[in-house]
Write a protein that binds this DNA or RNA. Structure first.
Lengths: 128, 128
DNA sequence: CAGTATCCTTGTGGATACTG
DNA sequence: CAGTATCCACAAGGATACTG
């Protein structure tokens, strides 16, 4: 994300609130619903396409393919094809992908810690 | 997000990959493009609506209003209306909102740190 | 098995106009 | 100033069918 004061976050092209800011673009990519879940579903081990599809409940074949392609393009995932019939394809996180797990874990921890408060706040807000 | 092994993350309703998982719902909320930027734009100080609109480049009035309402509902932001003409409205992060800054900062740091590698990976991937 | 291709529905969000 | 209301365009994403 972005810090309180623009001047404290001068990375790469000035204003981080700027639409073209690279950090913002990256966050748009890794911040999407499915990428976050796929990183979690992969963890440290390798997994096949169908296994991933099973783990990430609710993802469609199309979105899983698309998400994995983008992650591969970003260097977050390695795709290995085994030339056999039927084809077998394994995915695993790269070092960069693995390094993403820590900040995402921090977010997950925040969610778990604040879930109760958020739900309470919502109920209070809604009953008015 | 979600950990490598489902069994290590049994918070609140079992499988975190589950579509109904509260953690997943929360992440959907705070993970969206504008919430992240508004948290950053608010920082520690209060800001008026128009000031926020100026800080978060590219946000429309509609989305800023909508984002602030949802954040208020979630207990992340406090909205204070000053009954004067013309009206003045101030926003500031609650303690919960402030606590969100740390994990989001971790993600921002990751982005800055890996930006170069990601861009390089993309170029390499695309030239094939 | 692991996709690709196509269609089609839906949601997201921008632009604009109006108001307490 | 800080919104609300309305309309509209586009893109994300699901369902389905087909393939190396």
């Amino acid at each position: 994300m972005v810090t309180a004061n623009p001047s404290t976050s001068v990375a790469l092209d000035g204003n981080p609130y700027n639409q073209g800011c690279p950090t913002r673009r990256i966050l748009d990519r890794i911040g999407d619903r499915w990428t976050v879940l796929v990183v979690g579903a992969l963890g440290d081990d390798t997994a096949r396409f169908s296994e991933l599809k099973r783990r990430v409940e609710g993802i469609s074949q199309k979105m899983l393919t698309q998400t994995l392609r983008e992650m591969e393009r970003d260097g977050l995932v390695i795709r290995t094809v085994f030339a056999q019939v039927p084809v077998k394809v394994e995915y695993r996180l790269t070092d960069a992908g693995i390094s993403l797990r820590a900040p995402l874990k921090a977010l997950e921890d925040w969610s778990i810690e604040h879930l109760g408060a958020v739900l309470t706040a919502q109920q209070f807000y809604d009953q008015e």
